[in-house]
Design a protein around this nucleic acid. Structure first.
Length: 223
DNA sequence: AAAACGGGGGC
DNA sequence: GCCCCAGTTTT
């Protein structure tokens, strides 16, 4: 009984065993801290982001506490995460906006979240999914690539992918792809040189557009 | 759609 | 030094 449908739920279930939780949710599930953690994580690896969060959150777990911290203090706490000056300003600015416009609460809708300066679609979706536990899809290049590589969908841009996933994928599976597919993409299902040998879901994969690593050049022509 | 922006980390 | 990085903002 061959089926033309990719068993996406089985694939996600298998990958969830490999990547049980989003790193940020191992630090906090508090919406405010998730939001601030997302700012710290911009263009920054998890292993640097997490310690920065663990230094900052105990000192300033709320917008009220955060706005009392001098900018320099925030900068120092998050320093190794990079972009520390901009990030500190963004963190303080967001906290003040939450106090001014949202009674100190983090809004739980994409539309409201993206009005905060420094918060875009990706961060907004992570806050909704990780902070509030609501269905949210955060499509990046990894998710986009893997969904197409599996043959689950065929789309040109991450935006298209997000739209298609909203239609095709059951809402209860939305938020888990935020970390499962990203992690999978970072560690195994890479853009070039995918490690299909170690892939736990290779049996389900159609390997659309899988690129091998280019053979190393054997010799440079001398002259 | 593409560039600008920003700074530490890996190599 | 040079390039990368789960992004956001501006042109």
């Amino acid at each position: 009984m061959p089926t033309s449908t990719i068993p996406i739920d089985a694939i996600l279930h298998t990958l969830t065993e490999a990547f049980p939780d989003h790193p940020m949710n191992e630090v906090t599930k508090n919406p405010y801290e998730v939001l601030i953690g997302c700012i710290i994580s911009l263009r920054t690896k998890d292993e640097v982001t997490i310690p920065a969060c663990q230094r900052l959150f105990p000192i300033a777990p709320t917008p009220e506490a955060m706005v009392t911290l001098p900018l320099k203090t925030i900068q120092k706490l998050i320093y190794p995460a990079g972009f520390y000056k901009t990030k500190a300003e963004t963190i303080k600015n967001i906290s003040q906006t939450l106090l001014d416009d949202y009674n100190g609460q983090v809004p739980n809708t994409i539309d409201e979240l993206i009005t905060l300066k420094g918060v875009g679609r990706k961060t907004a979706n992570l806050v909704v999914g990780l902070g509030f536990g609501l269905p949210a899809i955060c499509v990046d290049t990894h998710v986009h690539r893997i969904c197409n590589r599996l043959g689950y969908i065929r789309t040109k841009t991450p935006e298209d992918t997000e739209m298609r996933l909203r239609k095709k994928l059951p809402a209860e599976l939305w938020s888990i792809i935020n970390w499962v597919l990203v992690r999978h993409g970072q560690e195994l299902c890479k853009p070039i040189g995918a490690r299909c040998d170690a892939c736990p879901v290779e049996q389900h994969c159609r390997k659309v557009d899988v690129k091998a690593r280019k053979a190393p050049k054997t010799a440079k022509p001398l002259r």
